[in-house]
Design a protein around this nucleic acid. Sequence first.
DNA 1: CGGGACCCTGCGGGATCCCGCAGAAAATAT
DNA 2: ATATTTTCTGCGGGATCCCGCAGGGTCCCG
Lengths: 243, 243
Amino acid sequence: MKVLIIEDDPLHRSYLNEAIRAALPECDGVLEAENGNTGERMARDCKSAHIVMDLQMGQRNGIEAARTIWKERPETRILFWSNYSDEAYVRGVSRIVPVGAVYGYVLKSASDDRLKLALRSIFIESQCVIDREVRGMQQRSLGNVNGFTEAEYEILVDIALGLTDRAIAQRRNLSVRSVQNRLQQLYIKLGVYQPLGNQDDDGRFNLRARAVAVAFLRKLLNHSALERAETDLTAWLARQPHD
Amino acid sequence: MKVLIIEDDPLHRSYLNEAIRAALPECDGVLEAENGNTGERMARDCKSAHIVMDLQMGQRNGIEAARTIWKERPETRILFWSNYSDEAYVRGVSRIVPVGAVYGYVLKSASDDRLKLALRSIFIESQCVIDREVRGMQQRSLGNVNGFTEAEYEILVDIALGLTDRAIAQRRNLSVRSVQNRLQQLYIKLGVYQPLGNQDDDGRFNLRARAVAVAFLRKLLNHSALERAETDLTAWLARQPHD
DNA sequence: CGGGACCCTGCGGGATCCCGCAGAAAATAT
DNA sequence: ATATTTTCTGCGGGATCCCGCAGGGTCCCG
């Protein structure tokens, strides 16, 4: 059994290495990659079915890497070890995890023991381990009390990218009016909507831009989510016949 | 001589601690704080004039902390030790550094020796040390070849917050038309401007929203910059007589 | 002093956005 | 199968945005 570490911070990498050797004596080899690209390649080459990786790396995003790795071998077990529990990350992960896959999500702030326990649970006992904090957010997010539909999230990303209503309609196969309906939904859920009576702060905010701002502040969006969306968008634009 | 570490990652904290002891044998005490708030307090209490801190901490942003620390004692020497060289960070730092202050900015990816050298330069020899990569960005940014004016950056932040033209005009004491002029400048510099002939991708993008997206992708803006701007904004809103 | 470079400002118009209203279509419940 | 809810859609109008055009300041230079 081999374990692959994908993590760009050398300190964290060596810490992980040590933790893995301590927690998994049956492991006979720990490999290290310092970014998503080489991580993917090494996963492919050495057929390691056990991976620990950081989200948020400079070169190539952890989620991107995980997606392609899982696409090639869905039975791979991945433990995400991240600094943050941004909704953007959690959503990004749950979007790509294959059905029935074993994975984990623990925060770097977790204790030593917790990490080791997670390692054993996932790699030995085939059991998912999601950090309590992350799990809580997941519940809130998907259990639709104040959570965002896939449709709403999608349109949020679209306006964050700077698309017009018309472009979004085209992309999502909707009428312009429907796009605007969804936007209204979004504005309401983000608490940005302005009932007409409000004289105080009326007209101060451009709803569209404001929605993106609060989404960022709430960490519903973050840099890597935006980056991912941007590459998706350019791919779509390229496929598009020029009007 | 005492040194104060402000850094939320325990691994990095202990690494720093070790590096400081090794590089500065004349140092007779290393203190640690795990977020900006306690960092500020400790800086105030123990009158340490030598600080090493991370930007990007969960609790309270490094830049915020540095600002208040420098406001209280401008002669404090601060070494910023950060993962990234986002333009938003660099700009944020250079905005708050007092005239004549000694400070440094080195990336976490720098070698051991580089860090130790920086520590000695700043704390012993009173010399500023800016990482080459950061310095490069600073030049490009301020030497106005493709760099952004303070005015342009300001209006970028304003639209990122979701303000309307009118609100911006009010806030910055300008006419609406002037705001729009600056926006046009911004659009051009961000490479978002659409000359009218372009039939291909004409009308796909909402310039205002697109500008914000591009700024984020280029790391001209990031979460902490936005957060800072948001608190400034709410302060201004509170000061504002209701219409 | 006149010319030039720059920024601020008003005007006007076309494009876009925001959204209430109301009917059609689809999904869901009873 | 019918009722109810949800979603999609067109229409229309007011607000906002985007920006060309032109006039008015300020500052600098010859």
